[in-house]
Design a protein around this nucleic acid. Structure first.
Lengths: 330, 330
DNA sequence: ATGAAAGCGCTAACAG
DNA sequence: CTGTTAGCGCTTTCAT
């Protein structure tokens, strides 16, 4: 069917190991034969078989990336950083989308290892579960944006700091009754943001009201529902810190369609700084995360881990988030 | 290093072909041994090697997807449809992002074939080039959203119809001096939309003004630049039909920040209906494409092609786009 | 039902 | 410099 080095060896009347050497730029072939081999290979339309090669070399130049949701442009941008950096380094990536489903996540972990990927970048749907993977994962893997685990490399931002910075800013702008519209409770990053939020309030001697800290999921719909719960009563909430930008979009949706004037009557703060946050129609004040860089660093560290092999050191990169002031806060 | 069927055969004192049969649910093993094998495999933490398997079975249960840009949520949603459907069918996908770069695209085509993917879904960065791939691609592949090519399966929407429908609507709403802010000239889909636009104008005996049909690329920045060119003069343009939603966002950006009242003074129409188009702050009137379905059908047809093998028939699915009226048109 | 053996396409060690 | 050979881990005949 498809043509192999044996075919081109036969066609040239030489041994196929010579063909292999020639094609791989290995020493041990005369320039003469090397040229002939390369020419013949091209002529015959030869395409090396990576599986056969991988089988003997025990490496595939392939990595697996597991993320919960690609339509969310936060992950879209992170993924872009990963894939582009991977390609620059000669790796191809298997992209796996879990839809925040742990069963699917585990299934992927299995599949990727059966495909013998050289490494895995994982954003777990349930950060707490990550620790249990230790024994199940036998290739280098790196945790992305979750809970740093002992013994594994990690890349993420300082979420607590982000929560703190954002809340401090809202306070400084005169907001006093600030709610938190979170994503999943299972999300470690989400809870870190909440902790930062609490820290800032306490620093200002504002009592923490549990009823103002709500969770749903990381979608616009979730944000809409939370906004409804928070605003459709007499709680007099004057600002909502959203667990991420997509949630914030949902909050804005509810608020604008229900007559809240923004930013005077209600301040809205997001987290991530996705592309759409800066559209003139949105102008969302938010905590910026360096998304592309997150992906880039994740991949670079993973490659280091792969090269270091069995006794790799555990690396950790924590980037600092940054407040971006736009128009949804006064 | 990693454990193999030989290891588990040795540990059980049986031949490794029996192990293979047991693990693959093939006949030819007693239930007794089958159970023992499965238990032992689990106990030893055995993970089958897909490369070895693929080498003999000549199939990888892997497909390659090549798209220009994942950050654009149009492709994000299409990709989601592809990946989810792939997984449901037991396939894993290599995701390749070309950044609209033809060199990278060709490189990917090579790499994917060396990885012996079972099939490829391709959205080329330059639709015209697709035809040249015939000889270079030796696996089933399907064209996504480009120019249907003789001899290949295809999935896309009726772009001409979309351009026509949108323009007719603008006309009906009383807009008369309608410009087209396109993406790349190399994009067949883009040009089809332009053709539909022209058809509609001609039907109303409105002369075509080439100066009102401009091209840049499929980004918000591109849209912003085109809007500047179109609006910053005395051309009295009263509506802009954008090549896609992201372009439309750029157009809206320019228009709002330069004091044009929308939709009275200027109507804006997009194409795609990405998630962000329906945000209350945006409310973009646009031509809806069934994105998830596009991906889903693409994958399903590809699988059919793969199963049909050498003498596969060429299938083609053309979906109808649909006008969604929101607030950027009167 | 089980085992032995061939072979998928390739790399790498070993002779010559 | 070149050819022979032994695997990589697995599936699949073919015997037994």
């Amino acid at each position: 069917m498809s043509i192999t080095i044996k075919d081109i060896a036969r066609s040239l009347g030489i041994s196929y190991s010579s063909v292999s050497r020639a094609l791989n730029n290995k020493p041990g072939v005369s320039n003469e034969t090397r040229k002939r081999v390369i020419a013949e290979a091209k002529k015959m339309g030869y395409k090396p078989n990576d599986m056969a090669r991988g089988l003997v070399k025990k490496q595939t130049n392939t990595i697996g990336v597991i993320i919960p949701d690609i339509a969310n442009s936060f992950f879209g941008e992170v993924t872009e950083g990963i894939i582009e950096t991977a390609n620059e380094n000669g790796y191809t990536v298997f992209l796996c989308i879990t839809n925040w489903n742990m069963e699917i996540e585990k299934e992927y972990l299995r599949t990727l290892q059966e495909k013998r990927v050289d490494g895995i970048i994982l954003k777990s749907s349930k950060d707490e579960e990550e620790r249990k993977y230790k024994d199940e994962i036998n290739v280098p893997y790196i945790l992305l944006e979750g809970r740093p685990t002992y013994g594994n490399s990690f890349v993420g931002v300082n979420n607590k700091r982000g929560g703190y910075t954002g809340t401090k800013y809202l306070l400084k702008q005169g907001y006093r009754n600030i709610a938190f519209a979170g994503g999943s409770k299972d999300s470690y990053t989400n809870m870190q943001r909440v902790e930062g939020y609490i820290d800032a309030l306490e620093e200002h001697d504002i009592p923490i009201n549990k009823e103002l800290i709500l969770y749903n999921d990381f979608t616009a719909k979730g944000g809409y529902k939370l906004a409804e719960k928070l605003l459709n009563n007499d709680k007099k909430i004057d600002a909502i810190f959203a667990g991420n930008d997509v949630i914030a979009l949902g909050v804005l949706d509810y608020a604008t369609t229900h007559g809240f004037s923004i930013p005077e009557e209600l301040g809205v703060l997001g987290f991530d700084d996705i592309f759409y946050a800066e559209l003139p129609q949105i102008q969302l004040t938010t905590i910026h995360q360096p998304k592309y860089e997150l992906g880039k660093y994740a991949l670079e560290i993973l490659i280091d881990d792969i090269h270091e092999g069995k006794d790799r050191t555990c690396k950790s990169i924590i980037l600092e988030p940054k407040l971006i002031v736009r128009s949804t806060t006064r």
